[in-house]
Write a protein that binds this DNA or RNA. Structure first.
Length: 474
RNA sequence: GGCCACGUGGCGGAGUGGUUACGCAGCGGAUUGCAAAUCCGCGUACUCCGGUUCAAUUCCGGACGUGGCCUCCA
């Protein structure tokens, strides 16, 4: 990190303020984000943290160097919802086999969705089931330090053993007591106590442990995996707003009490929720939509949308604000991205070309992507004016930095090869135009239009009429 | 009931104690064989009620509305 390093500031849920970000170790900036529980296809709400924290990952890599950032996003592959799904979908298979089928299939789908959304792979994507021993070690340490107790075959965290429990969510134990709407399990010392390890019946997945054959509670996996890959204290922990309580609160309690530290992560970041067409997303309302459906079916607006468009539609709104995910929003994102790609087309793009500094500067202000987009508009406008070569390259480099394809909306995707008949048709049409046979020229244009190809005429530097084309998406 | 967000023009969406985004759509112009694309120009706003202030959309209080959490839901 040099003196010229841009200063990043981030909103910290822990302090409810925006703070300047200073990594514990600028040579290894460490971020943990709660990943999916792999029991079902990821829905569009799940996509938000995936995309938002990818932008942060890219920003951190830019500022501190790609080799100096470690991003961990876990895969939760042990969970009672998974068990239920396995029983439902594969009733004839032995449970362990059925569970593996569910988790492998869902994880593969998630990784494919994440790729389609233009995200970089996290540095490490650990699975909960590969970290059972680490979880058990953590639980052992909590018991030893008097922060946990064994009751009715379960190991529970003793919330009263932590004086500042509830710091992140702004709750105290009394609040929780007053709000408790479910019957408190009789074996809990305090209603807020939560399970670290629970017993498994013969028909449930389980691992041997000092406390009997069982399985981990929900929160302990993240404490274990973040410690393994990032250490006892690290820089940034992220996830959705709903995870503040109880998940992150309890992660903090476990990690800090097990290690005797004052902080698990210095900065806690939470993305806002989204609605679909003005309503909260739920299966009963029928507006529950998966990433895969958006990519491949007409689930929204009767047509499919490319990942780049979903990505921009998500980033158009600041990550902490609520989003109303709608067809109109998708259309607007598509139009905007197309504008940028048009302005950047034909750009020279060096391998190491740096993104625009003003765009980076906007992102350093708590990921103000919208202002970054305004800066991009400005560059695109410059590129579209005469002599916009440098602006064009800058735009291309910046789009790449932000995780967008450079021609995904103009052709059938980056790296796609132009069918030869298009060039032939365009040449024929230009010949017709030069002999002022407009009827023939228009016929060719209409024919291509029916194939979803739009033509645009322009004049090159010598004043010659030229034609370029792009795909129409709808 | 407790805790936490949010409420800006037709739409999206920043930001600010006083001048004020930006984009989309809309309108006008340039360009074009006609288009498309592109460029130039133009409009309407800060949920309501109090308070602080010379001045509030911006600060404080309240109301109303929306959403989230308190139930292993991102």
């Amino acid at each position: 990190m040099t003196s010229g390093t841009p200063q990043i500031s981030l909103y910290n849920t822990l302090t409810r303020t925006k703070e300047p970000f200073t990594p514990l170790d600028a040579n290894n900036v460490r971020m943990y984000v709660c990943g999916p529980t792999v029991y079902d296809f990821a829905h569009i709400g799940n996509a938000r943290p995936v995309i938002v924290f990818d932008v942060l990952f890219r920003l951190l890599r830019h500022v501190y160097g790609a080799e100096h950032v470690t991003y961990v996003r876990n895969i939760t592959d042990v969970d009672d919802k998974i068990n239920a799904r396995a029983l439902r979908d594969y009733p004839d298979l032995p449970l362990n086999e059925a569970i593996r089928k569910v988790t492998e299939k869902t994880e593969a789908q998630f990784l494919s969705d994440a790729r389609a959304l233009g995200t970089l792979e996290p540095t490490v994507q650990p699975r909960a089931t590969d970290n059972i021993a680490e979880m058990q070690a953590l639980i052992g340490s909590l018991l030893q330090r008097g922060h946990a107790y064994n009751a009715a075959g379960e190991v529970l965290f003793d919330t009263t053993s932590m004086p500042d429990y509830g710091q992140l969510s702004g709750r105290n134990l009394e609040d929780n007591l007053a709000g408790a709407r479910i019957a408190v399990d009789a074996h809990k010392k305090n209603p807020a106590d939560f399970v670290l390890w629970k017993q498994s019946s013969d028909s449930e997945p389980g691992w041997d442990s000092p406390w009997g054959r069982g399985r981990p509670g929900w929160h302990i996996e993240c404490s274990a995996m973040s410690e393994r890959y990032l250490g006892q204290t690290f820089d940034i922990h992220g996830g959705g707003l709903d995870l503040i309580f109880p998940h992150h609160e309890n992660e903090i309690a476990q990690s800090r009490c097990a290690h005797g530290t004052h902080a698990m992560a210095n900065i806690w970041m939470h993305n806002g929720f989204l609605q679909v067409e003005g309503q909260k997303m739920s299966k009963s309302l029928g507006n529950f939509v998966t990433i895969n459906e958006l990519l491949e079916t007409g689930a929204m607006g009767g047509r499919a949308w490319i990942g780049d468009v979903l990505r921009l539609a998500m980033l158009m709104t600041h990550y902490r604000e609520p989003i109303d995910f709608s067809v109109k929003r998708l259309e607007e994102a598509e139009a905007k991205l197309r504008d940028w790609q048009r302005a950047a087309r034909g750009a020279e793009l060096a391998e190491d070309a740096a993104p625009d500094a003003s765009v980076v500067a906007e992102l350093t202000d708590d990921l103000n992507f919208h202002r970054a987009a305004v800066a991009l508009d400005f560059i695109a406008k410059k590129a579209n004016r005469d002599g916009g070569e440098s602006a064009r390259s800058c735009l291309a480099a910046t789009l790449r930095f932000l995780g967008f394809g450079l021609s995904s909306l103009l052709t059938s995707g980056d790296g796609w090869e132009e069918p030869p008949h298009i060039a032939t048709a365009i040449a024929d049409r230009l010949a017709a135009l030069n002999s002022r046979d407009f009827a023939k020229a228009d016929a060719i244009r209409n024919e291509l239009a029916e194939q979803g190809i739009a033509l645009m005429d322009y004049k090159d530097e010598t004043g010659q009429r030229q034609t370029r084309w792009e795909m129409k998406h709808d």
